Computed example of a mutant assay.
Amino acid sequence: MRIENSTEKDISEIFRLYKLATEFQKEKFPENQWPEFDQTLIEYEIAGNRQFKLMIDDEIACVWAITYSDPEIWKDDDGVSALYIHRIATNPNFRGNNYVKIIVDWAKAFAQDKKYIRMDTCGENKKLIQHYKNGGFDFLGIKKLGSVSNLPSHYQNADVCYFEIKL
Rank of each mutant, 00 (worst) to 15 (best):
L167H: 15
D76H: 14
T40S: 15
K166Y: 10
K108P: 03
M1F: 04
F163G: 01
R2S: 10
I42A: 14
D38V: 12
N157E: 13
P152H: 07
E124F: 08
S81V: 07
E72Y: 03
C62R: 09
N125Q: 13
A21M: 05
E43P: 08
Y84I: 04
C122P: 02
L17T: 04
E27C: 05
Q39K: 15
F24L: 04
F110L: 05
W74K: 09
D38R: 05
Q156S: 12
I103L: 02
D38I: 08
N157Y: 14
N5F: 15
V100A: 10
Y99C: 02
Y132F: 15
K126F: 12
V104G: 07
K166F: 05
L54K: 07
D120C: 04
E72P: 10
F163A: 00
K115G: 10
C122R: 05
D38N: 14
K28R: 11
I11N: 05
W74Q: 03
E59C: 07
Q33G: 05
V104A: 07
K144S: 01
A89Y: 00
I165S: 04
S69Q: 13
A65Q: 08
R16W: 06
D76V: 15
G135A: 06
D70Q: 14
I11M: 09
M55R: 03
F15R: 01
L140T: 04
P30N: 08
H154T: 00
E43R: 14
F137I: 09
T121C: 08
L145F: 09
F52S: 07
W34G: 10
E31H: 11
D38C: 11
P30W: 08
Y68P: 01
I66P: 04
P71N: 06
E31S: 13
D10Y: 11
